[in-house]
Structures are given as structure tokens and as C-alpha cells.
């Protein structure tokens, strides 16, 4: 059995006297989608930031390919192939697709102080990378990122991460702000990334989206793993109930006086 690409062992994280994460143990293998489910405030963001090297764990180990690692910062984690894509794609709305794709690693022509940004090459590679993920509507690298739909922006950010050699893709609520069609778009991209052998950590609180792509699920409640199971082991209702903190969704709805079958 191959070692998981990324593994957390007994991770605790506290900020001063406040404990945010308790005893988190998780692993994600290449070609697998780990869905991290949890309500607001469950500690998802802290967990992501720990994975991405923003926070150092207070206790516990992070392992990559079975070897213990310590991230000195987000750039270190990124250098080891951990890419985080945020809700709005982490891209620059007023930059062109080609330009934003290559921010920080611009292709150039010429030499010395007269290096020129190679717009054509940048545009071509960016458009190819996105189209390879099945987003054929993007065909002009000069278009501004802000003119893309939310789903296309996410896809662009994911394609960018993959192009630059990411091995672990952390997707922070990529579908939260999207409509049904756009979300389906992004989920297809997630599947494509998985097919290419990336390890994907997919953070969401939409159970439907998680079930559509997930192989492995972890539910986070108040900073601890409340459940850890594989595809097909639990129903949608059971997962929803878990996320609501053990109270059943039906009870919650009753409290609110709403009807579940609106």
C-alpha cells in the first residue's frame, strides 16, 4: 500500500488559551477526494490553514509521502505541491486570464533588464490549461478574469494549480457561492483533477456536492473529527445530521417551524 500524499496525525492547534483543533487525524491519497464537512465555526479554516502552512500545529505531525514535514510558511507548503484555491478563486478580477495565470512566474522574452512579458505564450498556455479541464468557453487569454463566471474562475484557479505541479489540491468551499450549473462545472473539474492523480481536499458544507465527488469523508464538529467514513457508508440524511452536531435536521427544522418539504 502506498503512503498517503498528505497525512495529519493527532494534530492539535490552539491560539493562546483557545483550543481550535483537537486530535485531528486525516489522510488523503493520490487520486482520492477527501471531503471535509463542517458547519461554520467548526474549525475548517484553521485546518486548511494548517494544511497550507499558514499555521504551525501546536502538537502532532504532518506527513507527506510518509515522511514527517514541517512547513515554514505558505510558500514552503506550496513549494512541496500543496495548492489552496479559495472561494473566489484567489485571482485578480481586473487582470487578463494570461496575466493572472502567470502571476509571479511570468514567461519572458529577451534578456537582462529588457526582459519582456511574453503575452502570447502566457495566453496560449493559460487557455490550453483551462481547456484541458474541459472549459472550452475560455478561448481568449486577453479576457479579464472579472468577466468570467464564478465557476470558470474556480476552474481557472484549479487549472493553474495543476499546471504548476500541485500534488495536493485544497479547495476551500469552491461551490459555496455558485448556482447549480456552475457548481456542477466545478465538481466536474474536481473529478478531472482526481483522475489525473491529484489528492484533493474538498471543503464544503453542501452535502450533495460532497457526495457527488467524495471518496472519503470527515465531519468536523467543534474542532474534532466527529465521523470519518468512506463512500457509500452513510446516507445524505445521516451526514446532514452529523454536521448539525448530532441533532437531527428534522429536529432543527421543527424548532424553526419550517417544513422540510418546502
Amino acid at each position: 500500500m502506498t503512503a498517503p500524499v498528505l497525512e495529519l496525525r493527532n494534530i492539535d492547534k490552539s491560539f493562546g488559551p483557545i483550543d481550535v483543533l483537537h486530535n485531528i487525524t486525516l489522510q488523503v491519497k493520490a487520486g482520492e477526494v477527501l471531503c471535509l464537512l463542517g458547519d461554520n465555526g467548526a474549525g475548517k479554516s484553521t485546518l486548511i490553514k494548517t494544511l497550507a502552512g499558514v499555521h504551525q500545529p501546536t502538537r502532532g505531525d504532518i506527513l507527506m509521502d510518509g515522511q514527517p514535514v514541517q512547513f515554514s510558511g505558505p510558500r514552503d507548503a506550496a513549494g512541496r505541491g500543496i495548492a489552496t484555491v479559495h472561494q473566489f478563486g484567489g485571482t485578480f478580477p481586473l487582470m487578463s486570464i494570461g496575466r493572472s495565470f502567470f502571476v509571479g512566474v511570468e514567461p519572458t522574452k529577451g534578456w537582462g533588464p529588457f526582459k519582456r512579458f511574453d503575452r502570447k505564450t502566457a495566453n496560449r498556455i493559460a487557455v490550453e490549461a483551462v481547456q484541458n479541464f474541459g472549459i472550452t468557453r475560455i478561448d481568449d487569454g486577453d479576457r479579464l478574469v472579472g468577466g468570467l463566471s464564478g465557476g470558470e474562475r474556480q476552474s481557472l484557479a484549479i487549472a493553474r494549480a495543476v499546471h504548476f505541479g500541485a500534488r495536493v489540491l485544497i479547495l476551500d468551499e469552491p461551490t459555496a457561492a455558485l448556482g447549480v450549473k456552475q457548481a456542477a462545472h466545478v465538481l466536474r473539474i474536481v473529478n478531472e483533477a482526481k483522475r489525473r492523480g491529484l489528492a484533493v481536499v474538498f471543503i464544503t458544507h453542501q452535502v450533495m456536492h460532497a457526495m457527488a465527488v467524495g471518496d472519503h469523508f470527515a465531519v468536523l464538529i467543534r474542532g474534532a473529527i466527529a465521523a470519518d467514513f468512506h463512500k457509500g457508508e452513510k446516507t445524505r440524511e445521516e451526514i446532514s445530521d452529523l454536521m448539525a452536531g448530532g441533532e437531527s435536521m428534522a429536529d432543527l427544522e421543527a424548532q424553526l417551524g419550517t417544513n422540510a418539504t418546502v
Binding site: L94, M95, R99, S100, K115, F117
Partner: peptide, 9 residues
């Protein structure tokens, strides 16, 4: 120059 890209970013 590629620097311009950095300024926009």
C-alpha cells in the same frame, strides 16, 4: 516587463 504584472497583481 514582467514587473508590470506584479504591480497589477
Amino acid at each position: 516587463s514582467p514587473l508590470g504584472n506584479w504591480i497589477y497583481a
